[in-house]
Amino acid sequence: MAFAKDHDLHRRRLGMNVGVALTLVAFVAVMFGVTVVKVTNGGLIEAYDHQPRASVLPITEPVQ
């Protein structure tokens, strides 16, 4: 089975499509990098979800 020949438009816009693809890949890479830093720095990833939860409560007194 042969693939259909590329439409002329796709060939002419190859550069455009490759550029968009690379931009998206770069965006994913940046997001990944930011996420890694945020998580390893111990950023609060548990948000308040209307249930009292020990891990998100402020520490009021030193633990004995």
Binding site: V30, G33, V34, V36, V37, K38, N41
Partner: peptide, 11 residues
């Protein structure tokens, strides 16, 4: 600021 976060901020 963390270099990665700084880079992202500038971007």
């Amino acid at each position: 600021i963390n270099p990665m976060l700084g880079f992202a901020a500038i971007l």
